[in-house]
C-alpha cells in the first residue's frame, strides 16, 4: 500500500489574525504547518530548519517584504511552491511576484473555500 505523501506548510504574514486564519482554515490532513513567520527576515531564518514544500506569503511586511523573500526562498529551494496571499490587487504586483518565483496568487480578503482551492492547486504541483 502506498503511503500518501505529507506536505509541509510555512505561513508568512505580518498579521497574527491572518496567520491563525490560514492555519485554522486549511483543511488538508496531509498538510502539516511547520512554521509561521511575521516578515521576510523571520521566514528566511525559519526556512532551512522547517524545509516546507508549500509557503503562503504576504507581500506588505516590515523588514523584508514578500517580493524579496520569494526570490530568496526560491534560490534556496527551487522546488518550493509559493502562494502569495495579499490585499495588493493590482496586476503589476501579481506579475512581479510570479516573476520572482511565486506559483499562485490569492487576494485578501478570502473565503475558506478560496484558500483551500489555492493550496490544493499548489500541492498538486509540489
Amino acid at each position: 500500500m502506498n503511503a500518501r505523501r505529507a506536505f509541509k506548510l510555512m505561513i508568512v504574514d505580518d498579521s497574527n489574525i491572518m496567520r491563525r486564519r490560514i492555519e485554522r482554515s486549511q483543511q488538508f490532513e496531509d498538510l502539516q504547518v511547520v512554521g509561521t513567520a511575521g516578515n521576510g527576515v523571520e521566514a528566511l531564518a525559519l526556512f532551512s530548519q522547517a524545509d516546507p514544500d508549500v509557503v503562503t506569503m504576504d507581500l506588505t511586511m516590515p523588514q523584508m517584504d514578500g517580493i524579496e523573500c520569494i526570490g530568496r526562498l526560491v534560490a534556496l529551494k527551487p522546488a518550493v511552491r509559493i502562494l502569495v496571499i495579499s490585499a495588493l490587487a493590482d496586476k503589476a504586483t501579481a506579475v512581479e511576484a510570479m516573476e520572482r518565483g511565486a506559483n499562485g496568487f490569492l487576494n485578501k480578503p478570502f473565503t475558506d473555500r478560496q484558500l483551500n482551492e489555492a493550496i490544493a492547486d499548489l500541492m498538486r504541483r509540489a
Binding site: 497574527n16 489574525i17 491563525r20 486564519r21 490585499a87 495588493l88 493590482d90 496586476k91 485578501k108 480578503p109
Partner: peptide, 29 residues
Amino acid sequence: KMQENDFSHETMRDLVGEVANTISGNARR
C-alpha cells in the same frame, strides 16, 4: 465571525490594519 478567539488590543489593531490594507489594495488596483 472570523472564528478568531483572541480579542486582545493587538488583535484589534491587526484587524483594522487588515481592513485598511484591503482598501489600499483596491485603490492600487
